[in-house]
Structure formats: C-alpha cells, structure tokens
C-alpha cells in the first residue's frame, strides 16, 4: 500500500499555462502512491478540471491569484484538495446533466464537473466565499492496483 506516502502541496498562480505543472505534480504523486498509469491519468484529468474551474469561474481569468493543491494520503485513498479564495462556485448544488441531452444541444459547459465526478470516487465542496473555497477529490486504491 502507500506506507511511504506523505502530504504534498503546490501553489500556482491562476493561469492556464500553469496547468501542465499541476498535471506533472499530480501524476508523480499518483504513481508514487501506487496507482496504475490508467488510474493516475484519471486523477490528473480530474485535478486539471478542478483547477480550470477555479481559473475560469472563481477567479474569472485574473492571472495573479493563488491556487493551492494539497495531496494527502488517507488510509487506502489519495485525497487532493484544490483551494482558492475567489468567488464561490458550487457545482454540487447543480443537477448533473443528462449527458445525451446535453450533447445533443451542443452545450460545452459542465463537462468538467461531469468528468470530475465520473473519474473520482468522491468529490466534495466546501465554501467560504471570498475567503476559502475547497474542492476535495478522493480516489481509492482498489484491489486490482499493484501494491508496493
């Protein structure tokens, strides 16, 4: 299991050109935690979507705000928290779209939230508008994962 895993964190400025750095950070951590390449890719994409939402919605493309990404091992799961202090954006109260209907109307919004919920085992939100918003993504190591 992930006995040696420890808490990691990274802070970036709210620009889309920093997404690559976030993905590399999360990929390394996911591999070290013991996730397969396939599972690690899912985690990376989910965190990218969370950060992209912060840049677009919480900070509305302001380029100099901060996004903190904290990775924590919690028993047999990896928990990634994406933290911002922008405008609250709470997709958890929005109904998950009917994907087929969504696509047939050529809607492009909301796909990131759908992906996060599909790719991760748990997606939780915490809000204190203008102070601290959190999206917490959890992925469990399953029995099929190679254990270290």
């Amino acid at each position: 299991m992930a006995a040696k895993a420890q808490k990691l964190s990274k802070t970036i400025e709210s620009r889309t050109d920093n997404l690559l750095e976030v993905r590399e950070f999360v990929l390394r951590a996911s591999r070290e935690f013991g996730f397969s390449e396939e599972e690690a890719s899912k985690i990376v994409l989910a965190v990218d979507e969370a950060c992209t939402n912060v840049i677009k919605h919480a900070y509305q493309f302001a380029p100099d705000r901060k996004i903190e990404i904290v990775i924590r091992p919690v028993k047999d799961s990896m928990q990634i928290t994406v933290i911002d202090d922008g405008t609250s954006f709470n997709p958890s109260i929005a109904k998950l779209p009917d994907l087929k209907q969504h696509l047939s109307h050529y809607r492009r919004g909301g796909l990131g939230i759908y992906l996060m919920r599909t790719l991760m085992d748990k997606v939780e939100y915490k809000y204190a508008p203008g102070k601290r918003n959190e999206v917490r993504l959890t992925k469990y190591l399953t029995a099929s994962e190679p254990s270290a």
Binding site: R23, L45, Y106, R108
Partner: peptide
C-alpha cells in the same frame, strides 16, 4: 497526448 474538457468543448462549439 492529452485532452481535457476545455479541448472537448472546442469540438462542441463548432460542430453545429
């Protein structure tokens, strides 16, 4: 090598 929903959204934006 990689695509996120922002990339997929571009296809949605033009297909119609």
């Amino acid at each position: 090598t990689y695509i996120s929903s922002a990339g997929l959204g571009v296809f949605m934006a033009f297909i119609e």
